[in-house]
Design a protein around this nucleic acid. Sequence first.
RNA 1: GCGGGGGUAGCCGAGCUGGACAAAGGCGCAGGACUUAAGAUCCUGUUCCGUAGGGAUACGUGGGUUCGAAUCCCUCCCCCCGCACCA
Length: 931
Amino acid sequence: MTAINFKQIEEKWQRRWADANAFDAELSSAKKFFFTVPYPYTSGPLHIGHGRTYTLGDIIARFKRLQGYNVLFPMAFHVTGTPILAIADSIARGEEEVVARFKEYIAIYEDADKVDELLNSFRSAENVANFFAARISEDFKRMGYSIDWRRKFNTTEPVYNKFIEWQFKKLYDKGVIKKGKYPITYSIVDDSAVGEDDIEGGDTEKVAVIEHTAIKFKLADGSYLIAATLRPETIFGVTNLWINPAARYVKLKAGDETWVVSKEAAEKMGLQKDEITVFDETEGSVFVGKIVKELVCGREVPVLPASFVDEDVGTGVVYSVPAHAPYDYIALEDIKKSESLELEPIKIIDIEGYELPAKEICERMGIESQTDERLEEATKIIYKDEFYRGVLNEKCGEFANVKIADIKDEVKDWLKRENIADVFYETSRKAVTRGGDKVIVAVLQDQWFIDYTPEWWKELGHKLVEGMTFYPEKYKTYMHDIVDWLAFRPCARKRGLGTQFPFEKGWIIESLSDSTIYMAMYTIAHLLRQLPVDALTEKFFDLVFLDIGDAQELSNELNVDADVLNRIKNEFMYWYPNDLRHTAPPHLSNHLVFFLMHHAAIFPESRWPRAITLNELMIREGKKMSKSKGNVIPLADVSELYGVDLYRLYCAINADFATVVNWREQDTEALRKKLNAVVELFEDSIDAESINEAELTHIDRWLLSRLYRRLRESVELFEAFRIREAGINIIFNAMNDIRYYEQRQDKDRRKKLVRSVMEEWLIILSPIVPHVCEEIWHELHESFISVQTLPELNEAFIDDRVEREEEYLVSLISDIKEILKVARLEPTKIYVYTAEDWKWVLFRAIKDLPDKDKIREAMKLRKDKSTVEFVKQVMKSKLDYFELGEPEVIEREKEYLAKEFGCEIGLNEEHDPKGKKRFAVPLKPAIFVEG
RNA sequence: GCGGGGGUAGCCGAGCUGGACAAAGGCGCAGGACUUAAGAUCCUGUUCCGUAGGGAUACGUGGGUUCGAAUCCCUCCCCCCGCACCA
């Protein structure tokens, strides 16, 4: 047998599918199935983890095709947003890390001598996008995906811009596009928003926007020292302020008040609030020793120096709560060593297990110095303990006796209402852009949002979700929750690639907001190219998508043939809605919920999406795949390293959708052997002549029954998206059946039998491993297997009785083996005694009775001591009832049994020296071994 | 914390609408067949006890419900994912 050259046949069939436009979907009278997978973002190569989703998607698409659906499976490319722009900028700046990474990426696809030139072209975002879009589409072709490529587009094309504009107009008309304030991460140097991808290390260590409460402390001159805190409820326990004597502080006008904050904080405030004017700058030491009045209880507390205060975190002023903050406690103790101070911690939180929490945690951890790094950890421990278990005590006025977790926001709101506090935003960690500029938080005063909160919208959303199918099902409930949780979402940015925001110049539509209903584009994208872009007006899309307006009228207005308009509209009307979208769970709370909500808002119910399937991610050798770990396998290498069908089989069989799949080299090898064995089986059987039904033996019938049953089950499993089980059934289990058969029968007969089920088998297998199936199929037929429809399976071969008989035999053999093993016998003759007729009569009579009634009922029929013994045996052996002519089966298989055990078999003979006969029960014969 | 998912044999992983489960499948390991040999393939075994098809103990921990629990409920411990404006 020659090993099949997978790579060669992959290329061959991919080429032939492409030449024949095998997967181009046209309108027809057949029932349609419009299937989508999210378009890839073209900022780099895809890896085998991404491939899992696309591969399972393709398997579904191919399965639907064999079920007779007219399947549309299109693809496009996502280009909008900031990452690609950030990449181009980084490359233009010559950032080493990015340059190195992209050289590597290019080298995946190109010869070494072209790398530098291409990299140079990557200074333009457009070139980055185009390069990867082209390579990814090559990858997809090489994976054998059955995509209709005529409909591809990318999200920066004018056609797409027009489509997105239309969509936003529809939303605007619904009144959900709004303006408001919004805090964002921001670079002062660039004067623009920065996203995760612009931040140094932003992909591994996220930077969040954190809301601090900025509390005012009144100085003698009427101005305020502003101390920012994450724990406003501790204001009741303040004993003093901390200020860094060496840092620079400024005075600023905020409204009609004068505030003192660090110089850095003032700069941030300038970007967070209107009307901030800085007018004076001094050193922190100026304030040391002054007395300030806290405005909650009106107590007077001193300002003390502290080295741990960072002028670039918060406002550079910190209020001290030594009872509950480890930093404050240690700093206070330090000062007390050199000066005599009358300050004592004020305990305001009662919590089990602590008297004075800050003191005790420091003592427990052995922290004694302000510079001890473990102070951070101590703070976290206390914070967490107090937040969830702590209760404010009687010193906290109206907030007393309430858990911190329940009262924190109320305290914060109250402080703001009383004008004792303001809001101050800070990043969750210190961060810089990839260009090295500081990242701070700015508040946009006029950010555009989509407001998902209107009642009507939520209701539609829930209705849509309720009417959909989700697999795995648990995601349906989850999606309802997400619909409820969704509120305001910024939908435009100042920077990035994308469509101009139609309602205000200078804004670009944010890239998840432009990827919500784009499936509609697939239905018509290839036709739109025939039209001038100017013709893609609001009325045009209204006509095509919503059937509003008249084609003839619009034809005159746009100067476009009415037939063309109708053709486009018909195409949309035929394909829409999206019957199934297949993706991964991380998209649930962003892309998918927008997908659903926007459909709910814009389209009538008949055009709402029908189903969503989701598969978990892929890891490799137990670890997450990531660039930084260097353990990524590019999709482009799959063909070379493993072979596409093997990869597809792995994706299909190794885990259910709901499970993270682990890519293990070792397992790929095991699977390769299995795949080879299957291919070999088919190749080996292909020339066999068909078998005459009249000459089928019991075991022949058994094999056919098993195989047809498996095929039938697999179709049902596929239908339910249980691809893993379907695959296991028609590969692993079916191969086991054949192996078993070969032990029972000779190979030539097997070939004939396999040949007789082979075509159906191949068709059902083809969604998973299309290339080898295509190859084998073509030894029999001219047409593509990939576009075959599965014929009716020959159900007549599925025969319960035949399978039961074989089961019976197997269990008899295993019983005998067990006896031989335990008794350590070399058999000279094996006696088998089947149950006598009266036992069968009773067996039938009591089979459906509950255990407790069985003996009584049996005794009614046959009054004898042996009846009781028999019924007890039946109950113990938990036999599943079915009718079987036991002696006939054993008689028929006597020869086989004799061969199996190398001795004579006696059936129901008188000879019974050990009195075993009486132990026989129906379906479980008694056995005596002589040896 | 909130929300979601888990913890199963040496390993990976099914089962988890309660009963036929000592627990699929794969890997590993051991023995055997084939082979000059290796590889590949196939067979057998892989908790413990047992000279008759049986029994005992097992599915993170500790309880509970039940005639019966890996499967249902509760306690605790541990792990993973998401918590947004970012594709």
